[in-house]
Amino acid sequence: MAAPTVQRSAANPIRKKRKELPFPLNLYQTAVGKKWVMAVTGLIILGFVLFHMLGNLKLYLGAVEHNGEAVWDIDLYGEFLRELLVPLFPRTYLLWLLRFGLIGAFGLHIHSAYTLTRMNQASGSRYQSKQDWLAANFASRTMRVTGIIVALYLVFHLADLTWGWSFISPEWERGEVYNNLGHSLSRWWVGLIYIVANIALSVHIFHGAWSMFQSLGLNNPRWNSARRLVAGGLAGAILIGNLSFPIAILSGMIEPGDPEVSISEG
């Protein structure tokens, strides 16, 4: 008969299985393992984001008396973090340890996201007609976009308030958390960046926190229905907390200045 158009009987894999690395590195070789890593690192980052937000609430406590001096409460908190577990560790050592952990988590989170995205792009084939989504929501479909927004924002945020790059925040001074925040966010365009980025962050968390349960295999009929609530609650709480800062500053509710003056006026 005529020449066959396709030679097959057994399916051809679209990717080859790679040589297995020793445990536990082999976990990171498969997509299920990568998702597990993504969930664990996501959990770490989520914990950081939550405590970061809670810590920032100190902004609203204004100025306090400390060792006879008037200081912004949040500046004290910043110093507390640098002094964590002193004298067991030298000053800032534990903070740096935590920072390294976070950097590692961010790195793995982003790397796994990137490699999984590449894998998914290689696995799919686009429909020519419009696909009608039933379960996928805005959050789940925009994870890559919100993730990228958050990553870019992270760099901006660090440059703005941690490294104090002068072309971004000319008035930045080390240790002056309250005033640095106040000066930077009182500019409308910076406030806007913070608002947009934090909405993206919460949208990311809304799907990510739920997805984490599935990827880690945390599934139990007794509390499955709570998983969406937990994810929504976390995303909502973080959204409200984080949005309040730029709004409070832009609206003038919080203004940079001298803690001494704030106390005497208070």
């Binding site: 008969m1 005529a2 066959p4 158009t5 396709v6 030679q7 097959r8």
Partner: peptide, 8 residues
């Protein structure tokens, strides 16, 4: 007959 290719 291979139903995909018609090969006998």
């Amino acid at each position: 007959r291979n139903l995909l290719t018609g090969e006998i």
